[in-house]
Computed example of a mutant assay.
Amino acid sequence: MKSHTPPVPVPVLMLVGITAISFSSIFIKWSAAPVSIQGMYRLFFTSLLMLPFARPYTGSAARLKRSDWLLLLASGTMLALHFLLWMGSLRYTSVASSTMILALEPLFIMIGAYVWYKERTPSSALLGLGIALAGIGLIGWGDVGLSSDNLKGDLLSLGGTAAVAGHLLIGQKLAKRMPSYLYSLTVFAAAALVFAAYNLLMGIPFFDYPPREWGIFALLAVVPTVFGHVLFNWLLQFVSAATVSMNILGEPVGSSILAFLLLGERLGALQWSGGLLVIGGLAYYLYIEGRNRRSRA
């Protein structure tokens, strides 16, 4: 149980973060650059923005053990994998389907927390996750009716969801013994380096992009990353990874509204039904988890 609280109420901070990350899929859809380039510059520019404010944390960085640096590299690798898979999914399926599948993050958090931290989930909460999984099945079934590419996008989003859960679980462990700002900066830099190595190996050009693309790279760094991921990493000091993962309940709603307004995307009845089941099931799961935490406290 956390013994301190942030200076601004958690719900307000979560709302800011949800609004920011809802723009992520829109910027990705607007870009014609390879997703690995988008991810690399998104994280590289974010690291550059954060670097001037990192001086107070040099002492903390010097005190980190070798095992901590290895965990930071692992967390950065998982974050890069998340972006590669999830951003790639938007090439094949709709914003709504991709972000609704991303909402399964608490399921992977639950599995990882049980395996790594021996945290058990009450059976009553599992009912909510079962409902959410049924919703994912409906989304996938509806997307199959559209094209096989849509199903491919759904699977990529599912893989990206598992990766970001791993990133968050590692972050929960590291946030207890290092400043969140230092954690975010080093993880983003590590993920950018992973992307750079990937692009180099795949022969993807680093610089041959028009000014419009560079503008999108900058927007991806400032809006969803700084005001989304950095904020959520900071919140790990005060709340659990499962609580931070509540942001995924709002992202599908915000992203779907923006996709309708800015991209003209529309969903069929099966996708909407599946999305409602996902959000409803996860809301129930998080409610039960929160009630049990308060009971234990």
Rank of each mutant, 00 (worst) to 15 (best):
S256C: 10
V226N: 03
L258R: 08
N233C: 02
N247K: 02
K173C: 05
L262K: 05
L249I: 14
L276I: 15
A269K: 08
L236V: 02
Y181P: 00
G215M: 14
G268A: 12
R266S: 15
L231W: 02
A192G: 12
V239W: 04
L182D: 01
L282W: 05
R212V: 14
Y183H: 09
L185W: 03
G274L: 00
A221H: 09
Y198M: 08
L282M: 14
F207C: 10
L200S: 15
G280T: 14
Y284H: 11
Y285E: 04
G274F: 03
P205Y: 12
N199Q: 04
V187L: 11
M202P: 03
A197T: 11
A241Y: 04
T186K: 02
P224H: 05
L220R: 07
W234G: 00
W234F: 09
A175L: 04
Y183I: 00
A242H: 11
W214G: 08
F195C: 03
F217V: 11
L277A: 13
A196M: 10
L231G: 06
R177L: 10
S273E: 10
V244A: 13
P179G: 01
L276M: 14
A218M: 15
W214F: 08
K173R: 15
K173T: 15
W234P: 00
K176E: 12
L261M: 14
L286T: 06
V230S: 01
A191K: 01
G264C: 10
S180W: 01
V230H: 01
Y183T: 01
Y285T: 12
T243D: 07
G203Y: 06
L261G: 10
S184D: 02
L258S: 06
A196N: 01
G250R: 04
L193H: 04
A192K: 03
I279H: 00
G250I: 07
F188M: 08
M178G: 09
A189E: 10
L200K: 08
V244S: 02
S255D: 11
A192M: 12
I204N: 07
G171W: 01
G171M: 07
L270F: 09
G275H: 06
Q172C: 11
Y183L: 06
Y181R: 13
L200R: 14
G171H: 05
V187H: 01
